[in-house]
Design a protein around this nucleic acid. Sequence first.
DNA 1: GGCATTTGACCTAT
DNA 2: ATAGGTCAAATGCC
Length: 291
Amino acid sequence: MEVGGSAPLPCHHEMVVGEITRSCQLVEKLRSIVLPPRGGEASRWPELQLVGDLFDEVLQSYRVSVSMLLHPCSCLNAGEPAVHTGSEWSRAADEAKSGEERPERTRKINYATDSRKELVQKSGATPTLMHSNGHQWLKPGKRNTTNVDIARGETNSWTTITEAPHFDGHQWRKYGEKHISKSQFPKTYYKCSSFKEQGCLATKTIQQKDGSHDPASYVVKYNFHHTCKPIKSNYSQHAENTSQQGSLLDLFPNNTASTITSPRRKPSDQCSSSSASSMLIDLNLTIQFRG
DNA sequence: GGCATTTGACCTAT
DNA sequence: ATAGGTCAAATGCC
């Protein structure tokens, strides 16, 4: 990844782009160490595919960040109803890299209600803008986002579209489900599982897109960022106890990940957010380099 | 018994 | 009046 574009960049922007580029290279290197070659063993284990997808999304996020630095005005101009996919963002980054002229891009951000903003202020939480893994952005809510808003960190909610709505690295507790008018599928409501213990205000809603089948895609709307600390799970404890070899593959004994279970998983909920997110956290904690 | 989920009731915004 | 979001009692699972 190289710095491109016609307009000269501020000095600190060049430094940031340089750092992001270096991070990108490090992630690529880490991926090659942690994961088997593409199309190999990873295709047999969905969990490894998930890890690979996350690496891809991290890399994509870096590219998008560079693109935004190179073209800040076009990236932050909200209010356009069109929807851009993650691949489009990636392509934008590639165009920036090659120095080609690119069409104007917009970021789509939804806002939480005013009452929620008050809640954040009372709790002392400091909402910050968070890009969501390069997923698809939806049109904004009632109010257009301005650069000033983003700089102030006044964006409290954001929306993504994904095929794995539960895999986001956090533990959630379902607190409601609602049938939405003119929608084929109900919307489910989740709070951060640390809501009681740590007062974390993060919530999310998940709704399957109408007409989406095999694979189903879901609209996931997040409200507020997590203020909670990660919870150490049983599985990370297991990884600590067996980390003598320090291999990611050690996390899947007997060549299967089915041994990863949530304490209270129901048979009908094999893809529960708790178990999946625990696994992601554990993977982050136990990746080690071989001597 | 403890905890998570379900689901109808209630509240708020439009 | 209606839709969307949240609450909380009931229910089920471990």
